[in-house]
Amino acid sequence: MILPSPQQLRYLIALADHGHFGRAATACAVTQSTLSAGLIALERQMAAQLLERASASKRPVFTPLGREVVARARVALAALEAVAETAATARDPLTGPLRLGVIPTIGPFLLPRLMPALRRAYPRLRLWLREDLTERLVQGLEDGRLDLLLLALPLAGPAAALETLPLGEDAFSVALPAGHRLAARDSVPVEALGGERVLLLEDGHCLRDHAAASCGLPRGILPGGEEGFAATSLHTLVQMVAGGLGVTLLPQLALDGGVLAGAPVEVRRLEGAAPGRVLALAWRPKSPRAAEFQGLGPAVAAAIAA
């Protein structure tokens, strides 16, 4: 039996990811004809059809078997890369490329002080960044497109199986329109939010789930029940609060990072059971680089604490 080569697997995965022969070839740093020839050779070796050649679609269409082979190719290629990573890590930890995924409610506020600290501590580490929602980052980690994630706990679904390293707590505060009745308090109990219109990020942002879970909040809506409107960033939430549309919860990390930016918004500490989230690093179970990631933890925790 002739086994597929790593290069053939890369061609196949690139075509599945980019959905276009030209872009896949560019991603693999080869010509389109080279990529096509490699895939044809792969099909001949396997005596199986992976792509529908008669499809009228301009995008490559994978056969059911082709989709299954792509999934298995991801696992196989990740395993091969793990072999090389094990040796490289043993020789010189925290050097070379590291693909880090970070969620949008952490990245803009932590990275400006984390990146300089990492460059000083690990000058030979080449950090590639990807900002996205937790679900897509976890998928990228499972597919081998990312090495490490910086996100918030608790995790749910498939993400709960990841190995995690908690780095520090990120407390919630209440953001109120200027002159709001609750601004007369030094701090706001969770129960006091029961009669307020609490604005949250749109579905898919873990901060929305963490706020609702830790504080027992109802689903946030806008005046008149216009649930089709939702914020996609904390900066937008702040402007909605400044406009008097409601109140919201903001993590301390974002407040320290300047999310208010002079907006006419008042902030009060939130009282209640576990009013906050936990920031953490996460990686694939049994990753050969787990010791590296553990070693990176203190530097990230120091940037959070700063």
Rank of each mutant, 00 (worst) to 15 (best):
T134I: 03
G140M: 01
D147H: 13
A152C: 08
L127N: 06
L125P: 09
P158S: 09
Y122E: 15
R181E: 12
T164Q: 01
L182G: 15
L182Q: 05
Q139G: 13
L182A: 08
R145E: 14
Q139C: 07
P123L: 07
L165A: 11
A178H: 08
G144Y: 00
L149Q: 12
D147S: 09
L141S: 09
P177A: 09
L165H: 12
P154G: 07
L155Y: 09
A161R: 10
R145T: 15
Y122A: 15
A171H: 07
P158C: 05
A160D: 11
S173D: 08
P154L: 03
L150D: 14
G144H: 01
D170G: 11
A160Q: 04
G144D: 02
L149K: 02
D143I: 00
H180K: 02
H180M: 05
A178Y: 01
R136P: 10
E135F: 06
Q139V: 07
L162K: 08
A175H: 03
V174D: 06
D143K: 00
R145G: 15
L148W: 01
L127H: 11
A175S: 09
L151A: 11
P158I: 07
A159R: 04
G168F: 01
A156C: 03
L150S: 14
E131S: 13
P177S: 12
L182D: 04
Q139S: 13
L151V: 05
L162V: 12
E131R: 08
V138C: 10
R136S: 12
L125T: 11
T164S: 07
G140L: 05
A156I: 00
R130D: 08
A159T: 04
G157A: 10
R136I: 04
L167W: 02
A178M: 03
L146T: 10
L129H: 08
A171P: 11
L146D: 12
L125F: 04
G157W: 00
D132Y: 00
W128K: 11
W128F: 14
L150V: 09
V174E: 11
F172D: 05
L129E: 13
G157Y: 02
L137Q: 09
G179A: 13
E142I: 10
E131F: 04
A160H: 02
D132W: 01
G157C: 02
P123T: 15
L176P: 11
L127W: 02
A175P: 09
L167S: 15
W128D: 15
L150N: 12
T164C: 02
A171D: 06
R130G: 15
T134H: 07
S173C: 10
A160K: 07
A156Q: 06
R145A: 15
L141Q: 11
L149R: 08
E169P: 11
E135K: 02
D132E: 08
G179H: 06
H180L: 04
E131M: 04
D132V: 01
P158T: 11
R181W: 04
R181H: 14
H180Y: 08
A159Q: 04
P154I: 00
L127M: 14
L176T: 10
R124K: 15
